[in-house]
Nucleic acid binder design. Structure first.
Length: 361
DNA sequence: GAGCCGTGGTT
DNA sequence: TAACCAAGGCT
């Protein structure tokens, strides 16, 4: 195995050490104010980072924008102020509170992680121990170790991938370039203020070194950027073309009785697992047509809901039960009062479907 | 490595 | 507006 040094070309070694001080100085002047960042205390002494809040924010921020996370972070920290409170929560309450944020395995893992952490009396302080907790992969373990515990860890998210790809003009395409990006990120990560450095890189990627039209004139490390020196920094990081998404069709069923609607809870770890939803047909119509309605009709077509998931698009017809007399759906579920439907924690797809059903004639 | 897993904002 | 993409993890 060839050494790391031999696989990394040009920029002079002394240049690596210049990046962090410039970035930290910029961060001291331009850091975003975010709910999970430490507010300076009046006495001039910074409050210690709360690992619970750092962990919670990092999990919420996985593949999710800051703007989307903020209200959820406020809701969660108000309702469950510390890890012990979250560990004691009913899982279905946490799932419902997570509704709308997406990637629901995060919420399942959040509860599992909170319970393990509460059991051992607090968060572990090393990257390796954090990495062993459910829902903490390479990125989140490194981020929590650096930000909450001041450990030197190499924090690489999509922002860092973009910044590093440009700083060193990496021509290899993602995701194969991740190994090389990690090596460069390691070289520029300082031993002092590693948490601030990680957040500085992410703030830079979010606000300056953006995917399209990067603001190089405002960048504190523009003079060290190989992509800028060569022109056209926006061509980095190089990415492989994406596969097209198929479109699936399906139905959801709105069954209403006595001002309540029949909701099911989706089982397993798959799509929307653990979340309440309307009964549906499995969205395989057009391929095997296997889904059967939970009640025999008649049904009113309440409209078509279009929703795009990560790897497919869905066109889902909403069918509203039109029969009279007592109804007994043949799928497990619960009658949910329609005037409290917001509390059910429906994922966005089914929230759309509910709106369509309620508004239908 | 590659597929699966949500959603809303931006361009 | 359609496409792209975001503080990724798990299998």
């Amino acid at each position: 195995m060839r050494g790391v040094t031999a696989s990394i070309p040009s920029p002079a070694a002394e240049d690596y050490a210049l990046i962090a001080p410039l970035l930290l100085d910029w961060y001291d002047r331009h850091a975003r104010t975010l709910p999970w960042r430490i507010a300076p205390v009046a006495g001039g002494q910074a409050a210690p980072a709360d690992p619970y809040r750092i962990w919670l924010s990092e999990v919420m921020l996985q593949q999710t924008t800051v703007a989307a996370v903020k209200p959820y972070f406020e809701k969660f920290t108000s309702r469950w102020p510390d890890v012990a409170a979250l560990a004691a929560a009913a899982e279905e309450d946490v799932m419902a509170a997570w509704a709308g944020l997406g990637y629901y395995s995060r919420a399942r893992n959040l509860v599992a992680c909170a319970r393990k952490v509460a059991e051992r009396g607090g968060f572990p302080a090393t990257e390796a121990q954090l990495r062993a907790l459910p829902g903490l992969g390479a990125y989140t373990a490194a981020a929590v170790a650096a930000i909450a515990f001041g450990q030197r860890a190499v924090v690489v998210d999509a922002n860092v991938e973009r910044v590093v790809s440009r700083l060193f003009a990496i021509t290899q395409a993602l995701p194969a370039s991740r190994k090389l990006i990690g090596q460069y990120a390691d070289r520029i990560t300082p031993h002092t203020r590693p948490g601030d450095f990680a957040q500085a890189m992410m703030d830079l990627g979010s606000g300056i070194c953006t995917t399209r039209q990067p603001k190089c004139l405002l960048c504190p490390v523009a003079n060290h950027c190989a992509a800028r020196a060569w022109g056209d920094p926006a061509r980095y990081p190089v990415k492989l073309p994406k596969k097209p998404k198929p479109t699936r069709q399906g139905c959801a069923y709105w069954i209403e009785q006595d001002a309540a609607v029949w909701l099911v809870t989706r089982q397993g770890k798959g799509m929307l697992g653990g979340m309440r939803s309307l009964p549906d047909d499995g969205w395989n119509a057009g391929s095997d047509g296997s889904g059967q309605p939970p009640v025999s009709g008649p049904w009113l077509d309440a409209g078509l809901v279009r929703h795009t998931f990560t790897h497919f698009a869905l066109e889902m017809s909403v069918l509203r039960f039109q029969g009279s007399g007592p109804v007994a759906p043949d799928v497990a579920g619960e009658w949910w009062p329609i005037d409290r439907l917001e509390d059910a924690g429906l994922p966005t797809l089914f929230a759309k479907a509910a709106t369509a059903a309620i508004n239908a004639d």
